[in-house]
């Protein structure tokens, strides 16, 4: 016989009408709250995504670790030689920057499919859209963790001590919530605009060179305030500088918080406006 339980005897009410004005915001907020309540589901889905991607593969997720290691090793030695930089200071910087950028890049390019990639699920059962955004953010973070051993190895091999500050913890927290906002934002855009994924990929390609990732931000001093126009610079700097033992300037912190707030506001408003249409698009 079907299972009974007390939690199932309540009768949930589904009441849907076209949204107007504040209704958009209210329903979007409810979606997000309910989605957060299903964090365990999002964790399972994100984890299974990774397990599936590597099912039947010999090294599985560690292919990623290896390719990161190869890239960091070759780029690090090459650029250190080309630009006459000390490997001991450059390589830790580069390894961390590359891995972190890989994570943010993945959140955004994969984010375009946060909803359109799970059309089957969306069309099969009603569930908060936030679950799909969380799933993507979680999956990206887990993949990012696979590359972290490379950073650790670089620090160990070069005998460099990483630094720790409480500010960095706040930075990580900010960055993590930002990845959720990014997946919501690009999930909506990607569901409506089919060309969003290639557009996002090429913009990220440009930002990769413009943002101080393979070059140190100290290289620019005159006009360094213009670097803050690139939202990724402060977002990366607030976790990178503390680890390298550098001081984060107040303006950098300010801009990081400002960009995060702006990102959440834009993501939320767009999501609120488009949430009820997502099922029609995917």
């Amino acid at each position: 016989m079907p299972a009974h339980s007390s939690s199932m005897t309540t009768e949930p009410l589904l009441d849907l009408q076209p949204e107007t004005g504040l209704g958009h915001l209210r329903n979007a907020a409810r979606d997000i709250v309910e989605g957060l309540g299903l964090l365990r589901l999002a964790l399972t889905l994100g984890w299974l995504d990774i397990r599936l991607r590597y099912r039947g593969s010999l090294l599985g997720p560690f292919w990623l670790t290896i390719s990161t290691a190869v890239m960091v090793g070759s780029m690090g030695v090459l650029y250190a030689t080309l630009f006459h930089i000390n490997v001991r200071t450059y390589l830790p910087f580069l390894s961390f920057s590359l891995v972190l950028w890989g994570w943010l890049n993945m959140v955004i390019t994969d984010g375009c499919e946060a909803f359109s990639g799970v059309a089957g699920m969306i069309h099969a059962v009603r569930m908060p859209y936030m679950v799909h955004a969380l799933r993507l953010a979680i999956r990206s973070f887990l993949i990012f963790l696979h590359s972290v051993p490379v950073i650790i190895a670089v620090f160990l091999l070069l005998d460099v001590m990483p630094h720790f500050t409480w500010g960095a913890c706040f930075g990580w927290l900010l960055l993590l919530t930002d990845t959720v906002a990014f997946s919501l934002l690009f999930g909506v855009l990607g569901a409506r605009i089919r060309d969003m994924a290639p557009i996002a990929a090429s913009i990220m390609q440009i930002l990769f060179f413009v943002t101080p990732i393979i070059w140190r931000p100290e290289l620019i001093y005159l006009g360094r305030q213009y670097m803050l126009l690139d939202p990724f610079y402060p977002l990366i700097e607030i976790v990178r500088a503390p680890l390298m033992g550098d001081v984060v300037r107040d303006t950098v912190w300010l801009m990081a918080v400002f960009y995060s707030g702006l990102l959440w506001i834009i993501s939320f408003l767009l999501f609120a406006r488009m949430r009820s249409r997502l099922a029609y698009w995917v």
Partner: peptide, 29 residues
Amino acid sequence: MAGIYEPVKGRVRVHGRIGTLLDTSLGMN
């Protein structure tokens, strides 16, 4: 009725726990 497509006009009200068997894949992976 399952709340997947929200109404463009009008209203849908469903009291009770909804079970759906709509897609052949059922959203299963």
